[in-house]
């Protein structure tokens, strides 16, 4: 069983980054009741941000990470004002098509501006490898994991203790009652959306030194985030965190046993299975969505 430690550590490293993508997605769903189909595109934008900051300004990706938080927050805020605001209370279908439209537009904007070529961000410490328990790991991966965990923890603390976080949770509980209590729900939605985008943008920056950057790069990660979010129960942040690890475990185990080519089928089928059997997630109350709550 020499591979076991390697598999476990791989799972943790992957799961940490998936978690950061997933918590933003589930936060937006929990508070706004919107499934953001453009989430992956914001991840992709974060990756390009790190890439260009490195290539043009020689910023280390971990410096860019600090800058990316306010930048993605601002991008999120602007996209809320411009695109999301009019449809927050619209029907599911309108919301779906709006975010799908946003996704297509952003993806292809990147295609037109930066071509479909995969680009690479190679820092000088890229090839540095750390050995843990006989297994070798890329240092960028470990740093990305550590920072992703720190950011996720920061988000949890923000939600738990800050005034805005409490207001966001109250709105997630009952948007009508919150509005009656004098909460400016429009502002809450803007902040929620922007915070969610900031998370995924930061995740993009962290992924850029590890994975190739191209216009549809967000899709594969966000697909996994959807799986995690649904598995954890849409809107449940702690659930998403655990589920992100579970999905990473499935992926790592899948790559190991059936090969990378088919592992995607494995988690897609898992995803469909969960949607069909327990649409409210493993920890959520079943049927909550169907009952319109």
């Amino acid at each position: 069983m020499t591979v076991l430690p390697q598999l476990i550590v791989s799972t943790l490293l992957l799961g940490g980054i998936y978690a950061l993508i997933a918590v933003g997605l589930t936060l937006i769903f929990g508070v706004m009741r919107v499934v953001n189909f453009a989430h992956g595109e914001f991840l992709m934008l974060g990756m390009y941000l790190a890439l260009f900051a490195f290539a043009r300004l020689h910023f280390d990706p971990y410096v860019t990470l600090v800058l990316s938080l306010p930048i993605s927050f601002a991008v999120g805020w602007a996209s809320y004002r411009g695109v999301m605001r009019p449809i927050v209370h619209a029907s599911h279908n309108v919301q779906v098509f709006t975010t799908v439209g946003l996704s297509i537009a952003l993806q292809n904007l990147a295609l037109v501006l930066w071509t479909a070529d995969a680009r690479f961000l190679r820092t000088d410490y890229y090839a540095v490898v750390v050995r843990i328990g006989g297994a070798a790991f890329n240092v960028a991966q470990i740093v990305a994991f550590a920072l992703a965990v720190a950011l996720t923890a920061g988000l949890f603390a923000f939600m738990r203790w800050s005034y805005i976080g409490k207001v966001m949770r109250a709105t997630a509980q009952d948007r009508d009652a919150s509005a009656l209590m004098g909460i400016d729900t429009d502002r809450v939605y803007a902040i929620t959306w922007a915070v969610g985008i900031a998370c995924v943008g930061a995740a993009g920056v962290l992924l850029a030194p590890i994975y190739p950057v191209y216009p549809t790069a967000g899709l594969q990660f966000v697909l996994i985030a959807y799986v995690a979010v649904v598995l954890g129960g849409l809107g449940d942040m702690a659930g998403a965190l655990i589920a992100a690890l579970a999905v990473a475990a499935v992926e790592v185990a899948g790559s190991y046993t059936i090969g990378t080519a088919w592992k995607e089928v494995l988690y897609l089928l898992l995803f469909i299975g969960i949607l069909v059997v327990r649409p409210a997630g493993l920890f959520g109350q079943r049927g909550a969505e169907a009952l319109g709550t």
């Binding site: 695109v83 098509f97 709006t98 537009a105 292809n108 037109v112």
Partner: peptide
């Protein structure tokens, strides 16, 4: 890419 950008924007505008 160009016409897909048009697609995306058309989608957002139409449903709204």
């Amino acid at each position: 890419g160009i016409y897909l950008i048009v697609y995306g924007c058309a989608l957002i505008v139409m449903v709204r």
